[in-house]
Amino acid sequence: HDVTIHAGDKTIHVHGASEEFLRIIEQAKRDGIHEEELLRLIEELVK
């Protein structure tokens, strides 16, 4: 999957995102996670 995530003034493109990655991001959004926290989460996941 190619994913584009908008968080605040940043746009992150993730190529080859796994289903698990997508679920984590969707869950985080539903939980109302702060955008900066979401960015950190994404950066950890894509290392």
Score class of each variant (00 low, 15 high):
His1Arg: 12
His1Met: 14
His1Val: 15
His1Asp: 08
His1Ala: 12
His1Gly: 11
His1Leu: 14
Asp2Trp: 15
Asp2Glu: 12
Asp2Pro: 11
Asp2Tyr: 15
Asp2Ser: 15
Asp2His: 14
Asp2Ala: 13
Asp2Gln: 11
Val3Tyr: 09
Val3Arg: 00
Val3Glu: 03
Val3Pro: 02
Thr4Met: 12
Thr4Asn: 07
Thr4Gly: 03
Thr4Leu: 10
Thr4Glu: 11
Thr4Pro: 03
Thr4Phe: 08
Ile5Ser: 02
Ile5Phe: 08
His6Phe: 07
His6Ile: 15
His6Trp: 06
Ala7Phe: 15
Ala7Thr: 11
Gly8Glu: 03
Gly8Ile: 05
Gly8Trp: 05
Gly8Asp: 04
Gly8Tyr: 07
Gly8Cys: 05
Asp9Glu: 08
Asp9Trp: 02
Asp9Thr: 04
Asp9Lys: 02
Asp9Met: 02
Asp9Phe: 03
Asp9Ile: 02
Asp9Arg: 01
Lys10Phe: 12
Lys10Leu: 13
Lys10Glu: 06
Lys10Val: 14
Lys10Cys: 01
Lys10Gln: 10
Lys10His: 12
Lys10Ser: 09
Lys10Pro: 03
Lys10Asp: 02
Lys10Gly: 05
Thr11Ile: 14
Thr11Met: 10
Thr11Lys: 04
Thr11Leu: 14
Thr11Trp: 12
Ile12Thr: 04
Ile12Tyr: 11
Ile12Pro: 03
Ile12Leu: 09
Ile12Gly: 01
His13Arg: 05
His13Cys: 07
His13Tyr: 11
His13Glu: 11
His13Pro: 02
Val14His: 03
Val14Ala: 03
Val14Asn: 01
Val14Leu: 13
Val14Cys: 03
Val14Met: 08
Val14Trp: 11
His15Gly: 05
His15Lys: 06
His15Leu: 14
His15Tyr: 09
His15Ala: 11
His15Glu: 09
His15Pro: 09
His15Cys: 07
His15Asp: 06
His15Arg: 02
Gly16Asn: 14
Gly16Pro: 04
Gly16Ser: 09
Gly16His: 11
Gly16Tyr: 10
Gly16Phe: 13
Gly16Met: 11
Gly16Leu: 09
Gly16Gln: 10
Ala17Gln: 05
Ala17Met: 14
Ser18Val: 04
Ser18Lys: 04
Ser18Trp: 09
Ser18Cys: 03
Ser18Asp: 11
Ser18Leu: 07
Ser18Pro: 05
Ser18Met: 04
Ser18Ala: 05
Ser18Arg: 04
Ser18Gly: 07
Glu19Tyr: 08
Glu19His: 10
Glu19Leu: 12
Glu19Trp: 08
Glu19Asn: 09
Glu19Met: 09
Glu19Lys: 08
Glu19Ser: 09
Glu20Gln: 07
Glu20Gly: 03
Glu20Ile: 06
Glu20Met: 07
Glu20Lys: 03
Glu20Tyr: 09
Glu20His: 09
Glu20Pro: 01
Glu20Leu: 07
Phe21Arg: 00
Phe21Cys: 04
Phe21Ile: 13
Phe21Val: 12
Leu22His: 05
Leu22Ala: 06
Leu22Gln: 04
Leu22Ser: 03
Leu22Asp: 03
Leu22Gly: 02
Leu22Arg: 06
Arg23Leu: 14
Arg23Pro: 01
Arg23Cys: 04
Arg23Gly: 07
Ile24Lys: 09
Ile24Met: 10
Ile24Ala: 11
Ile24Ser: 05
Ile24Arg: 10
Ile24Asp: 01
Ile24Asn: 03
Ile24Gly: 02
Ile24Phe: 10
Ile25Asp: 00
Ile25Tyr: 07
Ile25Ser: 00
Glu26Ala: 09
Glu26Arg: 06
Glu26Tyr: 06
Glu26Thr: 06
Glu26Cys: 07
Gln27Asn: 09
Gln27Trp: 05
Gln27Asp: 10
Gln27Tyr: 04
Gln27Thr: 08
Gln27Arg: 09
Ala28Arg: 01
Ala28Phe: 09
Ala28Cys: 07
Lys29Thr: 12
Lys29Pro: 00
Lys29Arg: 13
Lys29Tyr: 14
Lys29Ile: 15
Arg30Phe: 10
Arg30Tyr: 12
Arg30Asp: 05
Arg30Val: 09
Asp31Phe: 06
Asp31Cys: 08
Asp31Leu: 07
Asp31Trp: 04
Asp31Gln: 11
Asp31Met: 07
Asp31Arg: 01
Gly32Cys: 02
Gly32Ala: 04
Gly32Met: 05
Gly32Asp: 04
Gly32Phe: 03
Gly32Lys: 04
Ile33Val: 13
Ile33Glu: 02
Ile33Ala: 11
Ile33Thr: 06
Ile33Leu: 13
Ile33Lys: 06
Ile33Trp: 11
His34Gly: 15
His34Glu: 15
His34Pro: 15
His34Cys: 13
His34Gln: 14
His34Ala: 15
His34Thr: 15
His34Val: 12
Glu35Ala: 14
Glu35Asn: 12
Glu35Phe: 14
Glu35Gln: 11
Glu35Leu: 14
Glu36Arg: 07
Glu36Ile: 10
Glu36Pro: 05
Glu36Thr: 12
Glu36Ser: 12
Glu37Gln: 10
Glu37Asn: 06
Glu37Phe: 04
Glu37Thr: 06
Leu38Met: 08
Leu38Asn: 00
Leu38Tyr: 02
Leu38His: 00
Leu38Pro: 00
Leu38Val: 02
Leu38Glu: 00
Leu38Asp: 00
Leu38Gln: 00
Leu38Ser: 00
Leu39Thr: 05
Leu39Ser: 04
Leu39Pro: 00
Leu39Gln: 07
Leu39Gly: 02
Leu39Asn: 04
Leu39Ile: 14
Leu39Lys: 05
Leu39Trp: 14
Arg40Thr: 09
Arg40Tyr: 08
Arg40Asn: 09
Arg40Pro: 00
Arg40Glu: 09
Arg40Ile: 10
Arg40Val: 08
Arg40Trp: 09
Leu41Ser: 00
Leu41Pro: 00
Leu41Gly: 00
Leu41Arg: 01
Ile42Thr: 01
Ile42Val: 13
Ile42Glu: 00
Ile42Asn: 00
Ile42Gly: 00
Ile42Tyr: 05
Ile42Met: 03
Ile42Ala: 02
Glu43Lys: 07
Glu43Met: 13
Glu43Ser: 06
Glu43Asp: 12
Glu43Phe: 11
Glu43Leu: 14
Glu43His: 08
Glu44Ser: 09
Glu44Cys: 06
Glu44Gly: 06
Glu44Met: 09
Glu44Tyr: 12
Glu44Pro: 01
Glu44Asn: 08
Glu44Leu: 10
Glu44Thr: 07
Glu44Phe: 12
Leu45Asn: 02
Leu45Tyr: 15
Leu45Met: 13
Leu45Lys: 01
Leu45Phe: 15
Val46Glu: 05
Val46Tyr: 10
Val46His: 07
Val46Trp: 10
Val46Lys: 05
Lys47Gly: 14
Lys47Met: 14
Lys47Gln: 14
Lys47Ala: 14
Lys47Val: 12
Lys47Arg: 12
